[in-house]
Structure formats: structure tokens, C-alpha cells
Amino acid sequence: MTKTHTTNYFDTFIEVAEDCPVIHGEIPKLKGNNKTVAELQFEMISKKPYKYSSDDVLFQVFAERNDISEAEKDEAKKSFFSKGQPCFRASPLTKRYGFGVHSNHEGKIAIYGMETEEYTKLSSDSGIKTVKAMRTSKK
């Protein structure tokens, strides 16, 4: 049996990276004909906050960008999570676009722009764990 990895967090808030270049949450813009990872993640999470887990979003984005059919999804998902995957600490939403990611007690996620009251509340909530997104540049 292969090990299954997960990117899910529970009761955790991922703050934007220290070197995030923006001062408020910025909606990712279309570049070329294909939607970027940031756009796909943003659309999925912002339209249905607390509906999906991190694993759900990361795999769906992978599946969309790689044209994986419904019939191939189960096998592709097993393969995808048989290796460790970067979590939302490495997402362009947290590193570049100014969004924090909150995972509730069920592991379902929502995003909050760094300028919002919710972001401030979550980043100072002692009842949940807070972690920083990964820096883009090395110190």
C-alpha cells in the first residue's frame, strides 16, 4: 500500500509571506489563454468558502491544468498524493497576491485579503495555529 500524503491543515491560519509584494488581497489576472494556478485556486475558494479542503483545491487545479478526465481522476489522485505536494504556504495566493488561508476544524479552507478585518482577527486568534507562507526570496 502506498503512503498517502496530505496538504490539509486544521484550525490553522496561513498568513501572507513576509516578502509579499502587495498591501491588500489582489485578484489574480488572466495571463494568456490559460488560467494560472493562482486564478484557479482563487476562483474555487472564493466562490465556495469552507467547501473544499486544501487537498481538494490543489488536486482539482492539477487535474484542470493537465486535462485529466473524470474517468482518470481516481487513479490520478492516488498518484498525485503518493508524493508530497506543496501546501498553501507555497501558493501564489499567499506568496504573491496577499491572501491568508484559513483552515477550519474540518480542514475546509477560505481566503481573506490581508487588508480585511477577518484577516486581522484570524492572525491574532490564540485558538488557532498561525504559520507564515513561504518567502519567495531567500534571506
Rank of each mutant, 00 (worst) to 15 (best):
Thr7Tyr: 06
Thr7Glu: 07
Thr7Asp: 07
Asn8Ser: 07
Asn8Pro: 08
Tyr9Gly: 08
Tyr9Gln: 04
Phe10Cys: 04
Phe10Gln: 14
Phe10Asn: 04
Asp11Cys: 12
Thr12Arg: 14
Thr12Asn: 13
Phe13Pro: 02
Ile14Met: 05
Glu18Asp: 14
Cys20Asp: 01
Cys20Gln: 07
Cys20Met: 01
Cys20Trp: 11
Pro21Gly: 04
Ile23Glu: 09
Ile23Gly: 00
His24Leu: 08
Ile27Gln: 11
Pro28Asp: 06
Lys29Met: 00
Gly32Arg: 03
Asn33Gln: 04
Asn33Leu: 13
Asn34Met: 10
Val37Pro: 03
Val37Tyr: 05
Glu39Ala: 10
Leu40Thr: 03
Gln41Ala: 01
Gln41Val: 01
Glu43Met: 08
Glu43Ser: 07
Glu43Arg: 02
Met44Ile: 09
Met44Gln: 12
Ile45Trp: 11
Ile45Val: 12
Lys48Thr: 11
Tyr50Lys: 06
Tyr52Asp: 00
Asp55Thr: 03
Asp55His: 13
Val57Trp: 01
Leu58Phe: 02
Phe59Val: 04
Phe59Lys: 00
Gln60Glu: 13
Phe62Val: 05
Arg65Trp: 02
Arg65Ser: 05
Asn66Leu: 03
Asn66Ser: 05
Asn66Glu: 09
Asp67Ala: 04
Ser69Ala: 10
Glu70Cys: 03
Glu70Asp: 14
Glu70His: 04
Ala71Thr: 07
Glu72Lys: 12
Asp74Leu: 05
Ser79Pro: 04
Phe80Ile: 09
Phe81Tyr: 13
Phe81Leu: 12
Ser82Pro: 12
Gln85Ser: 06
Pro86Tyr: 11
Pro86Leu: 13
Cys87Val: 03
Arg89Ala: 14
Ala90Glu: 13
Ala90Ser: 14
Ser91His: 04
Arg96Val: 09
Arg96Phe: 08
Tyr97Ala: 01
Tyr97Asn: 10
Gly98His: 08
Gly98Leu: 10
Gly98Ile: 03
Phe99His: 11
Phe99Gln: 10
Gly100Arg: 14
Gly100Glu: 13
Ser103Pro: 13
His105Gln: 14
Glu106Cys: 12
Gly107Gln: 12
Ile109Lys: 11
Ile109Thr: 06
Ala110Leu: 10
Ala110Arg: 07
Ile111Gln: 09
Tyr112Asp: 14
Tyr112Gly: 06
